[in-house]
Amino acid sequence: MWPYCSQPIYSDGLPTIFNITIFNGYGIGGEIIDEPIFEPFEDDNGAFLDVHLEYSHKIWPWSGYLAIFIKVKPEASNFNGTSSAQIRLKVKTTNKIHETIFKFRVKIIPTPLKSQRILWDQFRQMRYPPGYFARDNLEQKNSPLDWNADHPHTNFKDLYEHLRGNGYFIEISGYPLTCTNLSSYSMLFIVDPEEEYFPAEIKAIQKAVKNDNFNVIAFADWFNSTLIKKIQFMDDNTGKLWFPETGGCNIPALNSLLNVFGFAFGDVILNGKFEFGESIINFSSGSTLIKAPKNAKLGMAKLNDIVSLFFFCN
């Protein structure tokens, strides 16, 4: 089952989360009674698993959820093999109780080297419909909204598979970065964040870069305050005029982090293609670097200013 089958789990890693949808065919409404029970299979190393469960107490209408957070215990840091378990839960509909059993098996490997581990910051990814988050690529006229955000299992699937194919392990963080031991990772991927970084997070990243050989890789799509005001739209679902929360990336928020390292992005939006080695790179609605520390290695390319073209054509 992709993507879970694409990467084994290991001790010291972030939890792997399974979101199980519960369909209740016995009635439109029901409830999960008692706490779901986690039962490790001792004959298949189930004791190595540390499992946390969250679930919907009410099942309405017809469905609910069971979220399974799986971690590997520290004593299995050198284990290589499989581990299996099952979860029992009881659903009550009218006066009848039905028990459901969910069985699973995971692949466990020894904890990878720090140089192989990548932390992906998913905590700051926002998408429509909770707010109006505009598309990343301004040339996509038929799809003005960012429905999927940026995730290694969706629009960054090719990057994810490339990294996995080269021996890297990608851990997806849905929490503030202060909740994670950054020294366990070789690099942090920041991809078009929509939210700001907390001061404590900036200090933690700065400390990890300075003391723990920690690297930061930032991807930044477009941001231009004038253009943001221009692409408002009437939402048929709410009957209200919606204004974008930010651009394809919240550049001011990202700059609050990058500034401590001497870097900053600007509000000019560029589009075009350029050569990089033997490859042709398609640069779509990206931001420009306007500040860099002395002796930084920078790439240069001739691209089109898409903001000027946008206002001229509209």
Rank of each mutant, 00 (worst) to 15 (best):
S186K: 14
G29I: 12
E31V: 12
Y10D: 00
E194Q: 15
F233Q: 00
I32G: 03
D44H: 06
D150T: 14
P244T: 11
T178E: 01
N237D: 14
F265E: 00
G262V: 03
L138I: 15
N237Y: 13
I37S: 04
T82S: 05
G174E: 12
P3L: 10
I108E: 02
R117F: 06
V91H: 03
K73R: 15
E245W: 14
I269W: 02
F274Y: 15
I231D: 03
E194M: 14
G25T: 08
D150G: 02
N45P: 00
N181A: 10
S225R: 10
G248M: 04
A85I: 12
D305Y: 07
K291M: 09
K107W: 01
P129H: 12
K297W: 01
F274C: 07
N237M: 13
K291P: 00
M187W: 02
Q206P: 00
W242T: 05
V91F: 01
A85R: 11
P193S: 06
S77W: 02
S285R: 07
C313Q: 14
F283S: 07
N224E: 01
W60E: 11
A200Y: 04
I217F: 09
G286A: 13
M300V: 13
T238Y: 04
K114S: 03
P130W: 05
W62I: 10
S173L: 11
L163M: 13
L270F: 07
F283A: 08
N224F: 04
D212P: 07
N304K: 15
K210Q: 13
L89A: 04
M187R: 14
F169D: 02
L258K: 00
N224V: 08
N155A: 05
E161M: 14
N137Q: 09
F311V: 09
A67F: 03
Y4G: 06
I118L: 14
L303T: 09
S183P: 05
Q122D: 11
I251Y: 02
C179M: 14
F79W: 02
A220N: 07
P110Y: 01
F311H: 04
T226V: 10
N78K: 08
G29L: 12
L289V: 15
C179K: 14
M187D: 03
F69L: 09
I87N: 01
F261W: 03
N271L: 07
I290A: 03
K96N: 10
P8C: 09
D212W: 10
P129Q: 11
E31H: 09
I109A: 00
V307F: 02
E42H: 10
P252D: 08
P176W: 06
T154Y: 07
D158I: 12
I109W: 00
P15V: 13
F311M: 07
T100K: 13
N19E: 12
L119F: 08
L177H: 04
K230R: 13
P8Y: 05
I306P: 00
A67R: 15
G272H: 06
F18V: 08
L289I: 15
H52W: 10
P15G: 09
F263S: 00
L258S: 00
V106G: 02
H57C: 02
K297L: 10
Q7C: 04
G286E: 02
Y132V: 07
D34F: 10
I37F: 05
A301P: 05
N282H: 12
Q140T: 12
L163H: 04
Y26W: 10
V307G: 00
E245L: 13
Y55E: 01
F41H: 13
I281V: 15
L182G: 04
G174M: 08
M300I: 13
I172V: 15
F263H: 00
D146R: 15
H151N: 15
